[in-house]
């Protein structure tokens, strides 16, 4: 079975019901995508499929086709940090950090679709669980990243990712 991950085509041989999460982690060694619950509740396993955030722990590999472009945290900012990662570094959002790859993938997807979300939109869209309680800085980080992306655009730059 062929998959397009972070701009490369990989071939894996697993049972059809294996969730994408475990293909990434155990077949391809991409352990940045985390297991938190296995029932799509916590969001630690969030990846992008064709640019849209999806929870990979309940997505069987049989439902993913080679034409779909999968991006994991390892592929988000390859040459340079994504503005969301930059914002996260700047204001020290992470505590233990375990949920943050999923959080960052969810936020970068949100901002790709809505470059200027309101607090209410952020609160309803970002439902990832963080037990350290980084939520106030997550909120601040989303807004900082949104500002950065807006000024990048103005300067003629691009926020396009892999």
């Amino acid at each position: 079975m062929k998959l397009s991950i972070n701009g490369q085509v990989s071939e894996v041989d697993v049972e059809d019901d294996t969730p994408l999460l475990w293909v990434l982690r155990e077949q391809l060694g991409l352990t940045g995508t985390k297991y938190g619950c296995g029932i799509a509740m916590c969001g630690a396993c969030t990846v992008h499929i064709d640019g849209v955030a999806q929870r990979s722990c309940v997505l069987p590999i049989s439902a993913v086709s080679e034409t779909q472009k999968i991006t994991t945290i390892e592929g988000l900012g390859v040459q340079q940090f994504h503005p969301v990662q930059d914002a996260w570094a700047e204001i020290d959002v992470a505590q233990c950090g375990f949920c943050q790859p999923g959080m960052i993938m969810a936020v970068s997807s949100l901002l790709a679709q809505d470059p200027n979300p309101t607090d209410e939109q952020i609160q309803s869209e970002i439902t990832n669980i963080c037990r350290c309680g980084t939520y106030p800085r997550v909120l601040e980080g989303v807004k900082l990243a949104a500002q950065r992306m807006a000024s990048n655009q103005k300067a003629g730059g691009s926020n396009e990712q892999v």
Partner: peptide, 9 residues
């Protein structure tokens, strides 16, 4: 100890 938490490494 922040940066390697942000890129999955």
């Amino acid at each position: 100890d922040t940066l390697d938490k942000l890129d999955g490494s």
